[in-house]
């Protein structure tokens, strides 16, 4: 049986999203929560990349010896790749901000437990 690689990628993306939400919801350690959120973002990125896949497609670079119609029929879809690049950059910067905040809070409270640091004392 041949496994459809696109379908498997969608499945992986879905699992990453579910694992991410699970980690953010149930794990108490802030670093683990953040790793979960990174999983969530990566799952979505993988989902977008997978959508651009075209079975038997060619790279979307127009080479001199190609005809337009051949290129238009066979090239895979470039837009998702461009979007994912931006999305990864955004993900990295928010990840940095979250980790930075965790460093400050860890110094202040001496703990990484979400229920201790992010409890109801913020009022």
């Amino acid at each position: 049986m041949v496994i459809d690689s696109q379908l498997m990628s969608f499945f992986t993306a879905g699992s990453l999203i579910v694992i991410g939400i699970f980690a953010a919801l149930f794990l108490d350690n802030l670093i683990k929560k953040i790793i979960g959120l990174a999983f969530l973002a990566d799952g979505v990125n993988l989902f977008i990349i997978t959508m651009g896949y075209k079975a038997g497609g060619i790279v979307y670079i127009f080479m001199p010896n190609m005809t337009i119609s051949n290129f238009a029929q066979n090239a895979s879809y470039p837009l998702p790749f461009a979007l994912v690049l931006t999305s990864i950059v955004i993900g990295a910067s928010t990840l940095a901000v979250m980790l930075g905040l965790v460093i400050v809070l860890n110094k202040r409270h001496g703990s990484l437990s979400a229920s201790k640091i992010l409890g109801d004392k913020g009022e």
Binding site: I21, A24, L25, A114, S115, L118, G119
Partner: peptide
């Protein structure tokens, strides 16, 4: 509706 993160994320999900 307090400020505990566990409460917030529970309601968000």
């Amino acid at each position: 509706q307090n400020d505990s993160f566990n409460n917030m994320i529970f309601y968000v999900i």
